[in-house]
Design a protein around this nucleic acid. Structure first.
Lengths: 204, 204
DNA sequence: ACCTGAACACCGTTCAAGT
DNA sequence: ACCTGAACACCGTTCAAGT
């Protein structure tokens, strides 16, 4: 946590901008985070962000990274909570993913809605989402060895699970499922049912 | 097809704006369709659209409807091409959905990226996506009676299939799968494999 | 080295005015 | 009834200038 107030001559403005943006998106929605609004929220002039970010897209990318790190953390928690149980690991990773999307719809939309144009190969979000995908691959590999999941290209099976969960999360977070499941509990219960259908398709 | 050129005093400006927008999004991307740019593209002043659309969101919604109607058409074609074959119907509907997302990434992003705030209950896009969902329900119901798909809540099974296909389409259209499948053929082949895993999960 | 403020070209929206 | 053009408050980006 940083202190002081009047000026940002200590090098933490980059972090302050990302935090201001992450807070703004939660309160005002994705259309509320203009570069100028983020700067004002952080207490600097509208041109100050350009000292730390190439352009608005880079700033948004930095803000999204907050969400990607939170996602990675939630996923590894779900995995650790269910040791040596590949079925529960897959089920609960999916639930964790969907829960985060529901609780932070705007952030999820920023992360996956296609607003951010990814330009650099070494993009942080790409790295983080790759890490998450590798975690998924690991779960399924373990499950294959334990005889829980069927044989076959692990990456394809992992992508199948990811697609299902991601699709449900997108439908839920953009409100297209509001008339089917109207509360978070109902949405997550439905998510479990749907995931179990998928697991039926990839089990041994 | 309308003729004339100089003026739009014949009532087809609404249609002309939607068409101009659909073309603009294809060429310039989603960030290129400002209300002013669409108006200029249609040959009218920047305030003319307000005679036909409440605001920019309503205009975007009208443009997205072009995509939703195209989607509905593709889906019913896929169904008609495979009569009395619920497995192929489900598989090919999904492929059709994904192919459209890949060929018109920007339009797909407009339709499902969360850019458009849906306000009215009788929203056209909601209606169209409901129609598409009902088609899916129909396929699975037929499949259940034919003994191809397992028993259970039809809507939940349909939502499972929709989530998978939608998630894969989102991942593919936002470029997150570019390093896994680098061509349209490769992407669609992978889509078929993934869908067959799902069908394994919901078959009888 | 880091930030400010004026400047520029754009944007969505409104409203009086034209036909 | 339908469209225009000025006006307003905003926006992203650049750049000379300040400390």
């Amino acid at each position: 946590m940083s202190s002081s107030s009047s000026s940002y001559h200590h090098g933490d403005l980059k972090q302050a901008l990302v935090e201001a943006g992450a807070q703004l998106i939660e309160n005002e929605g994705i259309s509320g985070i203009s570069l100028r609004a983020v700067a004002k929220h952080a207490g600097v002039s509208h041109s100050a962000p350009y000292r730390h970010f190439k352009d608005k897209n880079a700033l948004l990318s930095g803000i999204a990274d907050v969400g990607f790190e939170q996602l990675a953390q939630s996923l590894s928690q779900a995995i650790e909570k269910n040791p040596d149980n590949p079925r529960e690991q897959l089920l609960e990773s999916g639930v964790a993913y969907i829960r985060l999307a529901l609780r932070h719809r705007q952030m999820h939309n920023l992360m996956f809605g296609g607003v951010i144009k990814k330009q650099v190969a070494a993009d942080n979000s790409a790295v983080t989402s790759d890490t998450a995908f590798l975690g998924l691959v690991q779960i399924i590999e373990n499950g294959q060895q334990a005889g829980v999941y069927k044989q076959g290209d692990v990456k394809v099976l992992a992508l199948t699970a990811w697609s299902l969960v991601h699709g449900y999360a997108m439908l839920a977070s953009t409100g297209l499922l509001d008339h089917i499941a109207d509360s978070e509990e109902a949405s997550l219960a439905l998510a479990r049912t749907i995931e179990s259908h998928l697991i039926d398709g990839i089990r041994d």
